[in-house]
Design a binder for these strands. Structure first.
Length: 727
DNA sequence: GCAAGGTC
């Protein structure tokens, strides 16, 4: 009997390898695929009761991407609003990989297809990309529905147990889930590109400091920026609130001094504070009324996942998330650490904790701690979540001293974190003494470390330290050595740290573990924020602030962190089969199209924030060929500054330091003129036919009239919606 | 040239 051939496809080369090894009990042979990136592992076995020849390979993430047809990618010939109705092409993500051709060639003459793509929405979508790629070359018996030859493996961990169980219980790929991803991809493209193109063209040449910058919008990047600007606004709008405290020093029996914390904390009236001070000074001493010792413990951290690594590397190593992931990737490919992109924060049940730990026992830096943990026995960590993607990030082998720089530092963190997860709680005691001074109460505290536990290896900033306090007993009398009224204003919050921003993004479901560093990079590259070197705090530039304030004035929904969650909720209806793909998609496209048209109508409102911040590039300025900053006669036509100076502005220096503007009458007219100009550039089209004639095709007046006429109710609906939202 | 999502 001839064996059947089964093609199995995973989402990344490394996974194909693992799956083949696990399913074949290590008896598989491996060869390189024709695209040099993927490989094929082959083995013989059993499939549906038949003798079978298995070929396990993979894609490399998505096979296909979305884009507009070439003729829509000319910014000047395509009105941005037409991107809401434009056709969308699927193009190969990475043409060099020739992924479609590769998959088709491996599928030649194959009888069955088993899809091992990641068990998330994107993975379900890639399933159908693979199906499209192989459908033409698989063997198709007559009178058999092709999809009956296609199976989907559902697995939640890359372990022998899970993978073999998945193979025994194969299901089918879920078209609805895939369609929900398709809808999201389409929407992100239409919305992101339309707003970005329109804004960039609107502002082109308008303000000196912007200098032709791309003014982008995106459903992830913009809410991310909004988090930073929110904090900026809190800081700017902060009004210090004065308050008064009483600072006291008491003397213990042994002659040592200790500061007392006033039970009232603070008062808002200086006269009142003075009154209390007088009373306290009259009493002149205090009695210890209570001593209370409380035991506290801190748990070791959960197993390390991507988000935690990025946050720790930002705060403790001062590395940008993108840098951290780049370094982690390189450590992974060199075999130092496990796969670094994972959401899972607990070890799988059969994880070899002891083996992993034993490989660290000879290291000079932490070997003694690792050995001690080996001897005393590891503390199996509790808590954390298994997201079913990959095991947590752990060290795989020791470093013989070969690693340097950031590689060494990230590796060290991964090792220290791993060892910490296997150690005991940090235990300490806090002793609080209460004092009575007439009617007033004070207290002071001391802290004693009982067992440092995991904190000896993970030198986190919050490591518990001993805090000294004098020895006192209940009933002790303590002399008041000093008492003063101190006035203190409340202080504004600090700018967001990168680590806090990552947490907020994760909490609101903005981006994924893999895309969070990308979005943070984007808002830096677009000149919306700068990162303070030491603290890694994100400080919005004037441009960043203008963009967010502009949207808030027109349609605040566009920058809310919920905008993505709301969309995902709609898409979930597609995924669960409760709603039709086309219906939900066109509703969402329609909603954003209305928002976009509303935005166009209210461009003067949006622009007002920019006009109040930046210098209008006058016509003379634009015609002049002398750079207005360095006065060198080498300026690119149409730009205010020469190449050298505008290069500096691209790094953010200019926009940050941009002064407040000159709003002359000429500037006002100039702005109006530019507005119309940009609008008509955006709306006028000679190629209206394929693009829903109503929105293109006519002159400026006609366009506005036509749009108003055709979609008056919807456009107005958008308007009132935006208005309601503003309240 | 534009978004966000995979992965290398």
């Amino acid at each position: 009997q001839m064996p059947v051939t089964v093609l199995m496809v995973a989402e990344k080369p490394m996974l194909a390898d693992s799956i083949a090894r696990l399913l074949s009990d290590g008896r598989c042979s491996k060869r390189k695929g024709m695209n040099k990136i993927c490989s094929v592992s082959e083995y013989q076995g059993d499939f549906m009761g038949q003798h079978a020849f298995f070929k396990v390979t993979s894609t490399c993430g998505h096979v296909m991407g979305v884009d507009f047809p070439a003729e829509f990618n000319n910014w000047h010939k395509t009105p941005p609003v037409s991107l809401y109705d434009a056709p969308i092409d699927k193009v190969e993500c990475t043409p060099e990989m020739k992924m479609n051709r590769y998959l088709a060639s491996e599928a030649k003459g194959v009888d069955y297809l088993v899809l091992w793509l990641d068990c998330d929405k994107e993975g379900e979508n890639i399933c159908f990309e693979v199906i499209d790629a192989v459908q033409g070359s698989m063997r198709k018996p007559r009178n058999v529905d092709f999809m009956s030859l296609v199976y989907r493996a559902h697995f939640s961990a890359i372990t022998e147990f899970d993978i073999k169980a998945a193979m025994r219980n194969l299901g089918r790929p879920d078209m609805n889930v895939s369609l929900s991803v398709e809808a999201r991809r389409e929407l992100d493209l239409r919305v992101g590109c339309s707003f970005t193109r329109f804004q960039s063209m609107f502002f082109k040449g308008k303000y000196a400091e912007l200098d032709g910058a791309t003014v982008s919008y995106g459903p992830c990047q913009t809410p991310t920026l909004a988090f930073c600007v929110n904090r900026h606004d809190e800081i700017v709008n902060f009004r210090p609130d004065p308050y008064w405290i009483i600072q006291t020093t008491f003397e213990a029996r042994d002659g040592s001094f200790v500061k007392g914390d006033w039970a009232r904390g603070r008062v808002s009236d200086p006269v009142e504070a003075q009154m209390y001070l007088n009373r306290i000074q009259q009493v002149g001493g205090a009695t210890v009324t209570d001593i209370n010792t409380k035991r506290s413990e801190r748990n070791p951290p959960h197993a390390l996942n991507t988000v935690k690594l990025m946050r720790a590397a930002s705060t403790q190593l001062g590395l940008a998330p993108a840098t951290t992931m780049h370094v982690a990737e390189s450590l992974y490919t060199q075999g130092y650490i496990s796969y670094p992109r994972t959401e899972t924060s607990c070890y799988p049940p059969n994880f070899d904790l002891r083996g992993t730990l034993s490989r660290q026992c000879n290291d000079q830096r932490w070997g003694n701690v690792a050995s001690r943990v080996m001897q005393e026995g590891i503390n199996r960590p509790r808590g954390g979540f298994d997201k079913g993607d990959h095991p947590p990030i752990t060290p795989m082998r020791s470093d013989p001293g070969a690693l340097h720089g950031d590689n060494a530092r990230v590796y060290e963190y991964v090792v220290r974190h791993f060892i910490a997860t296997l150690m005991k709680n940090c235990v300490y005691e806090v002793t609080t003494a209460k004092l009575r001074c007439g009617e007033e109460e004070f207290s002071f505290q001391g802290k004693q470390l009982i067992d440092p536990g995991f904190t000896v290896i993970l030198n986190a900033s919050g490591a518990e330290k001993d805090v000294w306090m004098p020895r006192v007993e209940r009933g002790d009398q303590m002399r008041l050595r000093s008492a003063d009224v101190i006035d203190r204003p409340t202080t504004p919050p600090c700018y967001l740290t990168e680590s806090e921003l990552i947490s907020m993004m994760e909490h609101h479901g903005i981006g994924t573990d893999a895309s969070i560093p990308v979005h943070i990079n984007t808002i830096c590259q677009r000149n919306y924020v700068t990162v303070e070197e030491q603290s890694r705090r994100l400080i919005p530039t004037q441009l960043g602030v203008c963009v967010i304030h502009g949207y808030r004035a027109v349609d605040p929904e566009l920058v809310l962190p919920t905008i993505r969650a709301d969309l995902e909720r709609q898409l979930e209806l597609i995924a669960t089969g409760q709603a039709d793909f086309m219906t939900v998609k066109s509703q969402a496209v329609d909603l954003f199209k209305r928002k976009f048209l509303y935005f166009l109508d209210h461009m003067p409102t949006f622009d007002a924030r920019f006009a109040a911040t930046f210098t209008v590039a006058s016509m003379e300025d634009r015609r002049s060929s002398v750079c207005s900053k360095c006065r060198v006669n080498s300026k690119t036509p149409g730009r205010l500054y020469c190449q050298a100076c505008s290069g500096a502005s691209k790094r953010g220096a200019d926009i940050r330091s941009a002064g407040v503007v000159t709003r002359g009458s000429r500037g006002g007219r100039g702005r109006g003129g530019t507005t119309r100009g940009a609008m008509s550039t955006g709306m006028r089209s000679t190629r209206g036919a394929g693009v829903r004639g109503a929105l293109g095709g006519r002159g400026t007046r006609g366009t506005r009239g036509t749009r108003g006429g055709r979609g008056a109710s919807s456009a107005r609906g958008g308007a009132s919606e935006g208005g309601d939202n503003a309240n």
